[in-house]
């Protein structure tokens, strides 16, 4: 089940989007998300969909793969849909028992569903086309100015990239521990909430102990390789803007302008 979550995963393939500077992708994603909440009308949604479709096409990531990742948050999506559908006041269309579906409710629900889906697909394109390391590099660079305010930007970025590296290892370990305890008759599936929470102890204790041991080992290995924070460090893959990055910024700004124009004049 854990394997189905594609949010935050990297999909290896060759594409223009993959090659873009991570800063462009982070900036672009932020602008796109903001744009979703600006000036909503049918044309605006159409433009947002068109832009998203274009990026998906360019990214060479199969649409099917992205949708598979959506399954994990389907519940959240349905919940918002139902809430909006029933709880928006307005002109009632269908009424049964104490619930009524209003015209405004339907419009609101459709809007929310579209926005949420666009938002999730939009941000998953960023993670699907950028290696986690690249992503943290981009964030480190973008947050660079914060160093003036004594924000430990490099350390935060390093922590994130290490966390990302160890997630798959710890997931695999969780699976192994679970199997080892099931083999001893442990039951992770039945019983009430309290019983289930209690049944997690034999899983969590070995997992935590192992995670601490790994952290300890890793710190030692990093020190042995002369790691001493961001000071005086050079980069193997420094981020440098290329022509395609500037062009992409232009496209993104163009999209935002289009969205604003559509919002104001239509």
């Amino acid at each position: 089940m854990l394997r189905d979550i594609t949010i935050g995963q990297y999909y290896q393939t060759e594409s223009v989007i993959h090659k873009l500077d991570p800063r462009v992708k982070i900036g672009g994603t932020l602008i796109y998300i903001i744009s979703l909440f600006l000036f909503e009308n049918v044309w605006g949604y159409l433009l947002a969909a068109l832009f998203l479709g274009l990026v998906i096409k360019l990214s060479h990531v199969p649409f099917r793969f992205m949708v598979r990742g959506m399954r994990a948050i389907l519940f959240l999506l349905l919940l918002t849909l139902v809430f909006n559908l029933f709880l928006t006041p307005g002109e009632a269309l269908i009424t049964f028992w104490k619930l009524k579906i209003t015209k405004e409710g339907i419009i609101m629900a459709v809007r929310m569903a579209l926005r949420l889906s666009f938002l999730i697909i939009g941000s998953s394109i960023m993670t699907l086309t950028t290696t986690p390391n690249n992503l943290t590099d981009g964030m480190e660079k973008m947050m660079g100015p914060l160093k003036i305010f004594k924000v430990p930007v490099h350390e935060v970025a390093m922590m994130m990239s290490i966390a990302l590296r160890f997630i798959p290892i710890l997931m695999e370990e969780t699976d192994k521990i679970m199997k080892a305890q099931i083999a001893r008759g442990a039951d992770f599936e039945s019983g009430g909430l309290i019983k289930r929470a209690k049944s997690l102890v034999p899983l969590l204790v070995p997992l935590f102990i192992s995670a601490f041991r790994r952290a300890n080992d890793l710190a030692m290995a990093m020190e042995a390789r002369c790691y001493r924070g961001g000071e005086g460090r050079t980069k193997m893959k420094p981020l440098v803007y290329k022509r395609r990055d500037y062009l992409s910024y232009l496209v993104i700004v163009g999209y935002l302008a289009g969205k604003i124009v559509l919002g104001i004049y239509l």
Binding site: E173, I177, K179, P206, I209
Partner: peptide, 15 residues
């Protein structure tokens, strides 16, 4: 599972 006992590779995974 009680009749066919399985001991995994690393004891750290079960203690």
């Amino acid at each position: 599972r009680s009749q066919v006992g399985l001991v995994f590779q690393y004891p750290e995974h079960q203690l």
